[in-house]
Amino acid sequence: MVLIGMGIFAYSLRNVALTQLLHDLVHINVWWLLVAIGCMVGYLLIEARIVQVFVNDRLSGFTFKDALRIPLIEQLFNGITPFSSGGQPAQLVAMIQTGVDGGRASSVLLMKFVVYQAMIVINFLIALAIGFQFLAAKLHYFALFVVFGFLIHLVVIVGLLMIMFWHSFTKRLVNLCLKPARWFVKPERYENWRITLDEKIDSFYHESVRIKSQWRLMLHVTLLTLGQLAIYYLIPYFIMLSLGYHHVNVLMVTALHILIVMVISLFPIPGGAGGAEFSFEALFASYVTTRSKLVLAMILWRVITYYLGLFAGMWAIALKPDKVSEEPRENHRILHRLRNKS
């Protein structure tokens, strides 16, 4: 992926004078660039905190170092697999390495995913209201990709909500949609698929019932996720400030970044390579009118939001995890009260 990225950067620089690029790089405002990097670091730290909140609700002794490994490993495997499909399994393995039971780890990751998807849809609706008219006026074809990406995320969150609130109906609907698969696979395989899907739906439903009763926990995680996404979406704005563009509309730039992230999820190439770079240049060309600065902004954005996560994930894999206490959180609280009484 690094080699592919270098090839894309080289292609983007084909019409840019190297001397001009170096001039723009030398005169960059380092402080605003550090703020942009800090936003990405903050994004990962907040996600680590979300993981820790979910796990510590059930078990004791899950350290922040262990929690930090999870989003970093997620960044790596999301970045090297098509449609970011490797992030969830990699997180599950990383949590099991810390001593968290596989069932508990799956539940934590599932609920984190639900909250994250819900906040993405809400952010996208706000971005659509702010930036879709600009997008449709400048790039008609791009608007279609944005709407299609939104529909995919919307279908995902609606499906999850249906499991949470209409469990039996959703099971029947999924089994009905699965029936055509019998025409193409052996009966044994079809039955295995049906049983596995039913088990996954039941597991998610039981976990959602437990979580729904803990509204304080969900509110806490929701607010953390909103903050996490907000600072991530602000990264292009701070990159523009570092390049000297101080009069850009922060709401419009943030909205356009949300739309870019939505479109990237449609590209099957790991990390949305090619599509991400093209989308950034196409949308921000109206703000960054100098070609060399536009390409430099794209490279900086890509390094901060993508390659930084790849290398941080490689470091996280090499980091030896602590072992979480197998003692359930409720037992830990009871023992703590007994010790205090004694």
Score class of each variant (00 low, 15 high):
91 Q>G: 04
96 I>Y: 07
98 T>W: 01
69 R>Y: 05
85 S>I: 06
119 M>S: 11
71 P>D: 11
105 A>K: 00
76 L>K: 09
73 I>W: 12
49 R>G: 03
58 R>S: 13
70 I>V: 15
119 M>F: 10
125 L>C: 15
119 M>N: 11
100 V>A: 03
74 E>H: 11
69 R>V: 01
105 A>D: 00
96 I>E: 07
112 K>R: 15
120 I>Y: 14
82 P>Q: 07
98 T>K: 01
90 A>F: 03
86 G>C: 02
96 I>T: 08
119 M>T: 12
62 F>N: 11
80 I>G: 08
48 A>M: 03
50 I>H: 05
70 I>H: 12
77 F>E: 02
109 L>W: 03
103 G>V: 07
108 V>S: 08
122 I>Q: 10
95 M>Y: 02
92 L>T: 00
75 Q>A: 12
95 M>G: 01
86 G>D: 01
59 L>K: 08
104 R>T: 04
116 Y>L: 15
68 L>P: 06
106 S>Q: 06
73 I>R: 13
70 I>R: 09
63 T>G: 12
101 D>Y: 02
107 S>E: 13
106 S>H: 04
63 T>N: 11
109 L>G: 07
69 R>T: 02
101 D>W: 02
103 G>A: 12
92 L>E: 00
121 V>H: 06
75 Q>N: 13
96 I>C: 04
75 Q>D: 07
81 T>F: 03
85 S>W: 00
122 I>H: 10
115 V>H: 12
49 R>N: 06
84 S>V: 01
96 I>M: 08
125 L>V: 15
80 I>N: 09
73 I>A: 14
107 S>T: 09
117 Q>E: 14
77 F>D: 03
96 I>P: 00
66 D>F: 03
62 F>H: 11
117 Q>Y: 12
55 V>K: 04
82 P>G: 05
102 G>V: 01
79 G>A: 08
63 T>K: 14
98 T>H: 02
119 M>C: 14
